[in-house]
């Protein structure tokens, strides 16, 4: 187990393994996303209240889930960096940040596009929207801090601390935003009865979620390989490539 861990952490090894995985992951992603989109956009029946516009949920919900999952992954990397100073974790952490920010942005955009026909406005200060927006700021802060520090190994440690601090804070922020929202009972357009979801909608949703996860790993591997080459450009194994 530890040997595997150690081996996986070595940059050249990871570079090779990730390179082998990328075509397989791309294939898997294509299959899943096609099935999910077919199920979501064609096979699933229109909603009795929302008509067809609910279908954006098949992109929106998975990306919102991913925006949180990626942050958790970054915090785990942060702990690994602080404890073991593992080089690979540094690269995974910083490569995850733009991907996570993109998922968060996608969730926000699709959410407000859905909100226009449903709520009559692109943006409401709803609890989830607001905490998602703050999450986006946290991602941007991590990216900004990493860019600002020139020595990338130092930058990785700074970002690791920030990711851990953020991970402690994210539940607090989420909870307080929710509490704030129930207090400031604003326009009640956000209230609508959530029909319990039908399996013909649930299945494509889960497929889409799975495909987004595969896509994350895929994008992560590609980003990591590029980052690895950039950092280790002076080392022997890169020259041998």
């Amino acid at each position: 187990m530890f040997l595997w861990f150690h081996k996986f952490g070595s940059p050249p090894h990871f570079y090779r393994i990730a390179g082998k995985w990328i075509p397989w992951l791309s294939g898997l992603f294509l299959v899943l996303v096609t099935a999910g989109l077919f199920g979501g956009l064609i096979a699933a029946p229109p909603d009795y209240q929302q008509g067809d516009s609910y279908r954006i949920m098949f992109v929106h919900v998975p990306s919102a889930w991913m925006s949180m999952l990626v942050y958790v992954a970054m915090a785990v990397c942060g702990i690994i960096i602080m404890v073991w100073r593992m080089k690979l974790a540094e690269i995974v952490l910083i490569s995850s940040a733009p991907i996570g920010a993109s998922f968060t942005f996608l969730a926000l955009v699709t959410g407000s596009l859905w909100g226009k026909p449903m709520w009559g406005t692109y943006w409401v200060w709803d609890a989830r929207l607001t905490s998602e927006l703050i999450l986006l700021f946290l991602y941007l802060g991590i990216i900004g801090l990493h860019n600002a520090i020139e020595d990338k190994r130092v930058a990785a440690r700074a970002v690791a601390i920030l990711a851990i601090v953020g991970a402690v804070n994210v539940p607090i922020i989420h909870f307080s935003v929710e509490w704030w929202n129930t207090l400031h009972q604003g326009p009640t357009v956000t209230k609508f009865d959530k029909p319990s979801i039908y399996w013909s909608m649930l299945l494509p949703l889960l497929l889409m979620a799975l495909s987004f996860q595969v896509y994350y790993v895929l994008a992560l591997f590609q980003q990591c390989r590029a980052e690895l080459l950039r950092r280790e450009r002076n080392s022997k194994w890169v020259e041998e490539l």
Partner: peptide
């Protein structure tokens, strides 16, 4: 925490606000 992270930077100010303000949200709300 934010200052400690950015103190070594020449232009830490803007980054500092980006790091710290989101974390201040719960305090502001309550």
């Amino acid at each position: 925490i934010g200052v400690a992270l950015t103190v070594g930077l020449r232009k830490g100010g803007i980054i500092l606000s980006l790091l710290v303000l989101p974390l201040y949200v719960p305090v502001l709300i309550f």
